[in-house]
């Protein structure tokens, strides 16, 4: 797997991914968050005292990606987009503020709040 990105890089890639999906009006974006438990370190003393970092992943869930077991490189298939970043517990609030902004800006395919208003205005302009 690709190495974890910095927050800035993650956000720019994520907004890119979201806006591309919204433009195409098809496909999906999966965002996952889970605590990052360091299993390699001696877990007894490290884990319980402080909150774990949060691992954030984003992917387009592209199943057309070439099978890594196949050695053949198929140029036509678009490879799966995978992004990930790690958020330290103290950065969570700042990160999620940006995260929410990026998601709000990128998820333009959802129902707008002012849909009816806009239609009414358009009608009024025509008449």
């Amino acid at each position: 797997m690709a190495p974890h990105l910095g927050h800035e890089e993650f956000f720019s890639s994520l907004s890119d991914l979201l806006s591309k999906t919204s433009q195409k009006a098809r496909g999906s974006v999966f965002l996952t968050q889970k605590p990052l438990i360091d299993t390699t370190a001696s877990s007894e003393n490290a884990s319980s005292s402080s909150r774990p970092s949060i691992l954030i992943r984003a992917t387009d869930g592209n199943t057309n990606a070439p099978n890594p077991k196949n050695n053949k490189v198929e140029k036509k298939t678009v490879s799966k987009v995978k992004l990930s970043t790690i958020v330290a517990p103290e950065d969570l609030e700042a990160f999620y503020t940006r995260y929410a902004e990026v998601c709000k800006a990128g998820m333009t395919g959802l129902k707008k709040r002012d849909r009816k208003k806009g239609k009414a205005k358009a009608k009024a302009a025509k008449a």
Binding site: A25, S28, L31
Partner: peptide, 8 residues
């Protein structure tokens, strides 16, 4: 884990 899916 929490997964957020944005899909068409």
């Amino acid at each position: 884990r929490i997964t957020t899916k944005y899909n068409f």
